[in-house]
Amino acid sequence: MGIVEDLADELAVDALATSERLENEKIILEVSEILGASSTTAQEAYLTAIRVRRAEARARKYLEECRTKAAKAQ
């Protein structure tokens, strides 16, 4: 990845963790607004990283559920 994507991804990881720890979804949006005020390119990369990481988490949860069901069926 390029520097924008790398930095945006690192920020997304931190924002997701902080949001989860503090149980405050607004943190993710507020970080986005701060980025957007200075760089829409960074904001877009950040929001993409958020979406990708959330999608990956949902997919992993689904796979784990499938494994659990299969193990119980055996």
Results as ranks from 00 to 15, higher is better:
E25F: 13
R54F: 03
D9S: 14
E20W: 08
T48Q: 14
T40K: 10
A8E: 06
S39K: 09
I3S: 04
C66H: 03
E56C: 05
A71T: 03
S32G: 15
Q74G: 00
Y46Q: 00
G36I: 11
A42G: 06
A8H: 08
A17E: 14
A42N: 07
A37C: 05
R51I: 04
D14V: 15
R67T: 01
A12T: 06
D9M: 11
L29N: 13
D6T: 13
V31K: 01
V31E: 13
D14Y: 14
I3Y: 06
T18L: 15
I28R: 01
T40F: 07
L63C: 05
L16C: 13
L29C: 04
V4T: 08
L22H: 14
M1L: 05
L11E: 04
L63R: 12
A8S: 12
I27L: 15
S32W: 05
S39C: 12
D14I: 15
R67A: 09
V13F: 02
L29W: 09
E23G: 13
A70E: 02
I3A: 07
L29Q: 11
E23C: 14
T40W: 05
A15K: 02
T18C: 11
S32L: 06
L47E: 11
I34N: 15
L63S: 09
A45R: 07
L22G: 04
I27P: 00
M1F: 06
E20N: 11
V52Q: 13
I28L: 05
T48Y: 12
A73W: 00
S19H: 04
S38W: 15
A73K: 03
A57L: 06
E30F: 10
E23M: 02
A71W: 03
C66W: 00
K61H: 01
R67M: 06
T41F: 02
T18N: 09
I3H: 02
V4A: 10
R51G: 04
V52S: 12
K72M: 09
S32M: 08
R54A: 07
V4E: 11
K26Q: 12
D6G: 03
A57N: 07
E23V: 15
V13M: 05
V31I: 15
A59C: 04
V13T: 06
A49D: 10
R67E: 11
R60D: 01
K26P: 00
E5S: 11
E10P: 02
E30I: 10
Q74M: 06
L16Q: 12
E10L: 03
V31A: 06
V52G: 04
A55I: 02
A12Y: 05
Y46F: 15
I50F: 03
E64K: 10
A12M: 10
A17P: 00
R58V: 13
A45C: 09
S19D: 08
V13C: 03
I50D: 01
E20H: 11
I28Q: 01
A8N: 08
E64C: 02
A45Y: 06
E5Y: 04
Y62E: 12
K72V: 11
A55G: 03
R60P: 00
L63W: 09
K72T: 05
E33S: 09
A70K: 03
L29E: 13
